[in-house]
Write a protein that binds this DNA or RNA. Structure first.
Length: 281
DNA sequence: AATGTATTCAACCGCAGTCAA
DNA sequence: ATTGACTGCGGTTGAATACAT
């Protein structure tokens, strides 16, 4: 279908956001919450289109955004998740608390993609390229790109076991677009009054803890980071797991087990494929 | 110091899915 | 069944910055 761009209206601001605009948007959302992006700018006193407001909030102003460089653990997880999910940045971002899809997409394009190529791996398929890249073909060699040279010398394929992630129940969802069963991580807050959901949450913590214990002999500080966050009435999710739905619970557990198993296994494309298949309902 | 080139990343664009009328 | 509004996603752009000469 498609729609006419919403930013073409005369008089609307475009480009970088000013501090004043940020403040207006933040204050409005703190008072009234997210959503209704179309009408938000007018109500908030902003000369921006709703789309622009949403983007600014999601990628920059949200309180749970994590600042700073991508850590090696995050880097490794991005590579693994990309191998499983492809360019589904929002899904990948959902598993990296505090990181946005835009940030991960940019990081992939500017860092990981180049690094994989320099290591002789096709960043799209994650398969080995036929021939290692020829130094003479490098665009910037003439000028001596020290940064890239250092990267080639120092960056090796490091394997990091995944850290337990924080998840919210209601983010187990059927994504609108991809129909991927999504257990997005969320960075903060949330309590629930639903005991059933809480119970399922505990079960998940157990799964994660057991995995961690198995991995590290039970001596892992990362366990401290395991918290199952409940209570999020995000209306966008098509499927909210009911705590009493045992079938659904076991399905989620099975998938999560499989997911962790996959992350343990280096380069097993067949398993990856079957895992992805299982997600595509 | 001046200039040219490469890199980064915030923001934009267009498309597609969902839902309500 | 159709239409249009709304939202979210992935791809792309371009200004700002970093780096090399």
């Amino acid at each position: 279908m498609g729609r006419a761009p919403c930013c073409t209206k005369v008089g609307l601001h475009r480009g970088p956001w000013s501090i004043r605009e940020d403040t207006l948007l933040k204050n409005y959302i703190q008072l009234h919450g997210e959503g209704n992006w179309r009408s938000l700018p007018k109500k908030a006193g902003l000369l921006r289109c709703g789309k622009s407001c949403r983007l600014r909030w999601m990628n920059y102003l949200r309180p749970d955004i994590k600042r700073g460089n991508i850590t090696p653990d995050e880097d490794d997880l991005i590579v693994r998740l990309h191998a499983l999910l492809g360019n589904r940045w929002s899904l990948i971002a959902g598993r990296l608390p505090g990181r946005t899809d835009n940030e991960i997409k940019n990081y992939w394009n500017t860092h990981i993609s180049k690094r994989l190529r320099s290591q002789g791996t096709d960043p799209d398929s994650h398969k080995k390229l036929p021939e290692p890249p020829q130094e003479s073909k490098k665009k910037r060699n003439k000028k001596g790109n020290n940064k890239e040279k250092n990267m080639l010398e120092t960056e090796k394929v490091k394997v990091h076991n995944p850290k337990p992630i924080r998840v919210t129940l209601s983010s187990f969802s059927m994504s609108r677009k991809s129909r991927i069963f999504d257990w997005s991580t969320r960075a903060n807050h949330g309590t629930s009054s639903h005991e059933g959901e809480r119970q399922l949450g505990t079960e998940f913590v157990d799964i994660i803890s057991q995995y961690s214990n198995l991995k590290d002999g039970g001596n892992d500080n990362d366990n401290d980071d395991v918290r199952f966050l409940l209570g999020d009435d995000d209306q966008d999710h098509g499927l909210v797991i009911n705590g009493t739905d045992l079938e659904c619970q076991s399905h989620v557990q099975k998938l999560y087990d499989e997911y962790l198993e996959l992350l343990k296994t280096e380069g097993d494309q067949l398993q990856s494929d079957s895992f992805v298949e299982s997600l595509l309902i």
